[in-house]
Design a protein around this nucleic acid. Structure first.
Lengths: 243, 243
DNA sequence: GTACGTCATTGAGAATTATCAATATATCAA
DNA sequence: TTGATATATTGATAATTCTCAATGACGTAC
């Protein structure tokens, strides 16, 4: 349970440019869907875009910066890192999700540590800018609510699917989550590190490795191309039911 | 893991009366805090109050009724009941919390089964009434958001505290949760059934019983009065850190 | 009071998982 | 390419937890 993952907590964000939310091509996914284009004409503070390399820390739990982030590309994990080195991932988020929303509800500090798993593009949105937009466009409040409800659903699913049952069942569920939410157009997904999978399911790294290796041998999980895998959904679903 | 809790899923709500939200004495806790008194003068549909005896089902997952509920008194569990009889509790809620909020975000059906643990008083709020109030009082949207954020925090804590670590640690964490959120003015709380505790922590009923019995023997947990218990917070916190 | 039902506790053995250690594989820099 | 490093896999054993079974405690109906 106590993993000594001495992953250096470094941030290596690279500025991509000013965001043009009115013209954002994935806006329907994002926090600002169906705000009018001109809503972004006179922002108090601009919204910038950044790229983060894999492993970089977007923000740390119990620290404060006045920004929330909207994920444009890539995969972000929200983790709880205890002082004893133990590490529990509570959520895995992808394009369209917003992180750091707790700041909008009066939280002083971030509740988790957010880390890029893959290369990630984010919009960095100042909290005062959100407030300004909320004042002028009450609909935004609903979108924030929708984000929260969505994340609540994910958290509940995390409890039911990834934190319940035998190790085999949990790892199978995790693969199904990756397949459902993070697969590309070929239905292939990046297989996470065993350490991350262990932190998601609350089981030991070696146990995860055994389950994954076993699934590979049984051809329930197979390589599609470099770093990308596909899985036999029906067979894994069977396992989640009957170990 | 698979518990054959053949608890009859019966509802026995008793009507208490029409709610007078403008004069609700715990309104600051509730969904409608700081809406003006007259906001409730011309509701499309009334808000009624009900009492539920322990064990009664408030609503069932995957069913639909156009109501959300605000808890005035008592303790409610949100559970996921799988067809194979397994039962995982994802949240424990008390006065001031609202349940069924997923309906406000377009969900067709409830996401959990909500069951009264103690005797419970609820306000039954029709969804159209919420919509009406939201239209007239945009601030309500923020309150819903706050409820969601609050429940998201609880869900995350559930993952980190109650679904991580050894059985001993999890049961200790559960007692700390009961002490923190559900203790009365004497700092005493109702000790849940072993079955509920097992469903909250994802461990077997017998294992929970062993841990609880052990805590009692060590005087970390002791009876205050009929059905109410107190715990040694410092000692239990110690256990959560070092097993 | 006794019989019954429900729930909590305890015991013992089986099964699962964690831990520690070794080996294999992949990755990366030179 | 070759090392050097990190990550994944596997093995063996210890520890934990689950499961099944028995017993105890408590309340309720009769």
């Amino acid at each position: 349970m106590t993993n000594d993952s001495a992953q250096a907590l470094c941030t290596n964000a690279k500025w991509i440019g000013r965001a043009h939310c009115g013209k954002c091509h994935i806006r329907q996914l994002m926090l600002f869907s169906d705000l009018p284009e001109n809503a972004f004409d006179h922002l108090l503070q601009p919204i910038d875009q950044f790229t983060y390399p894999p492993g970089s820390v977007i923000y740390q739990a119990d620290t404060h910066k006045p920004f929330i982030y909207s994920i444009r590309r890539g995969m972000v994990k929200l983790a709880h890192l205890a002082q004893d080195g133990s590490n529990r991932i509570v959520r895995l988020l992808g394009p369209g999700a917003a992180v750091g929303l707790e700041l909008l509800d009066g939280a002083e500090n971030y509740h988790h540590t957010a880390i890029a798993i893959t290369e990630v593009d984010l919009c960095k949105i100042p909290v005062p800018t959100i407030r300004q937009l909320e004042d002028n466009h009450p609909a935004l409040c609903m979108h924030v609510g929708r984000q929260l409800q969505e994340q609540l659903n994910l958290a509940d699913q995390w409890i039911v699917a990834l934190s319940t049952g035998t190790a085999r069942q949990r790892v199978a569920q995790l693969l199904l989550v990756l397949d459902e939410f993070f697969a590309d157009e070929n239905d292939a997904f990046i297989l996470l590190s065993r350490e991350d999978m262990a932190a998601m399911t609350g089981i030991a790294v070696e146990t995860v490795s055994r389950m994954i290796a076993d699934f590979k041998r049984q051809k329930l999980l197979y390589r599609h191309r470099e770093n990308y895998y596909m899985c036999n959904v029906a067979a894994l679903e069977q396992i989640t039911r009957l170990d």
